[in-house]
Design a protein around this nucleic acid. Structure first.
Lengths: 134, 134
DNA sequence: CCGGACTTAAACACTTTTCGTTAACTTCTG
DNA sequence: CAGAAGTTAACGAAAAGTGTTTAAGTCCGG
């Protein structure tokens, strides 16, 4: 029963990287080659990507429809996009404009820089009007 | 370059389960034993748990501060500890007392025996007042 | 108590991942 | 150009994960 997807080595390297160390510096610390640090870091990123994709699948199990909010969209325009998308499939979204904005900011804080969506957000819409943000 | 954590078999079974089929019914459809369906479903849930934990680790990388709730602490005293810790670094925690207690019980159920914290809990605090429990 | 739904453990063959090495490669900067 | 940072490819050994079977187990409603 292991914790997460990442191995000790992978977490170790991600922590050092977060501190701003170069691959060479890390290689010296843990006594290996920079090439090895590179591959371990790469596989760590790959694992993180897979973790995200796994949870997205979970949401799609419930969701029958989805749309994408493109990077660069104004946060305040997002509700209108989602409402119109839901209308197409005759679904009434459970949230009003204000709480929808709050839900996005809570679900994907790293995607919201001030009022700007800085990363594509996939919105999953269930028949019940529930939303998930991928 | 695989998609997510879940294998085709695991996703297949989760979809059937979502439709309300029993393990025996699924076993008949895919021509195997119900025990096998059970273990595959179980490993799928385990993979989902690991995916969640992996992303939680990612969040702890962003956390700039942390404190430890020592084993033996009364669960009801935890919010006060966290609030005072956050105050030290001028951060306003996003949660009130009640929802904070709920978050802990949800994130670390094995650490909460009745009202007693039975295992050290590391609390990660981000500059935005978000919390993660390690 | 019986049966249906589900769980668990042990064992097996098989595939994939991981960590590591070496060497060659790009890209950027002084 | 020389050097620092990073990436890539090929390979091997050890470790971990997967699908399966078989057999025994719990839990619950009728």
């Amino acid at each position: 029963m292991k914790d997460g997807l990442l191995t000790d080595r992978q977490m170790e390297i991600l922590r050092y990287r977060k501190q701003g160390l170069t691959q060479q510096q890390i290689a010296d610390i843990i006594s290996t080659s920079k090439a090895n640090v590179c591959t371990i870091e790469k596989s760590a990123m790959e694992n993180i990507r897979r973790a995200k994709e796994t949870l997205e699948f979970l949401y799609t199990l419930d969701a029958t429809h989805l749309c994408t909010i493109p990077s660069g969209t104004d946060l305040f325009e997002v509700p209108a996009i989602i409402f119109s998308e839901a209308e197409k499939i005759n679904v009434k979204v459970k949230y009003d404009t204000i709480s929808l904005i709050n839900r996005i900011r809570e679900a994907r804080p790293q995607c919201c820089k001030a009022r700007c969506i800085c990363e594509d957000i996939i919105v999953y819409i269930t028949d019940q009007g529930e939303l998930y943000f991928g």
